[in-house]
Amino acid sequence: MPDGTVPEHSTETAHAGPAAHGTDHDNAYAGLLVNDAHWAFGTDFEDPLAGVDTTVPDGVEPSVLAAYCLMLGDDALVASERISEWCSRAPDLEEDIALANIALDLLGQARLLLARAAAADPSVVPALPGDSPVPDEDRLAFFRDDRQFRNVRLAELPNGDFGETITRILLLSIWRLALFERLTGSRDAVLAAVAAKGVKELTYHRDFAGRWFLTLAQGTDESRRRVTAALTDLMPYWAELFGTHDVEAAAAASGVGVDPGQVAGEADAVLDQVLAVSGVDRPEAAPRAGVRGRTGRDGLHTEALSRLLAETQSVARAHPRGRW
């Protein structure tokens, strides 16, 4: 299946030749009007699931599969939005680039998962005017309100400092990697493939965040103070990651999804290991309550999500017939 990433840069017009052949570079600009289907490689819209068999496996309720994909897709999309807010604001250029990589990986996961949801159950896709060219993944991302988003609340919290972002990526990637490792065995071939690709990415995210968590915890008094404060602030949202929603239970029961409750022990052990290496005690943290028991998976979010979406969706919603 296509891996959803932007392909390597096209090189057909620009040669890295020695100085003597430098005039070849002039073609990079002059070639703009060349009528070549690949001239801006990677920019044509392609259905991220093009060529993939999206038949729902036997015995699986399409609405369950779609809702489950939206949950995992929304986690990725919303976390990606928060992380990409760091762009041009990171402590140094290397971290700016690394955070953008993580945001791009999660965005790629979100695109595949939203497209999978739409293919499994087209009724989840918001309706637009009949002549609208907006593809399904964008209808789902830009034309649902916050109450229809199924992401966990940890993904949507407003950004704090760099230590907060590192801690949040650490918590989210520990959890999501544990889920995705199991999800590679999904009966849904699409989800299994998305998970297989995601495992490699999430392994890097967890490694990046773990190394920075250790560095900050062992760096200066100031960095230790900040990163432990971030952990104290975020841990109340940890338990929500392992609560089993009815959709997750049904998806797990039919062999397409993973019950997050099943990965709690493993995730706790990984977190404890990072904390032990970093010399940080695990804070006592009572789980953050929902509203009558409802939290992110139920579409019951913090106040931050509707603001985030108002910004994210503003241009797309102003042009429901727009072509981008």
Binding site: V6, G42, T43, F45, L77, E81, S84, E85, C87, L104, L107, G108, A110, R111, L114, V134, P135, E137, D138, A141, F142, E311, T312, S314, V315, A316, H319, G322, W324
Partner: peptide
């Protein structure tokens, strides 16, 4: 970036 009108354009 935060207001890119499609996910593909956001990634680009």
């Amino acid at each position: 970036i935060s207001r890119a009108p499609s996910l593909r354009r956001k990634a680009i």
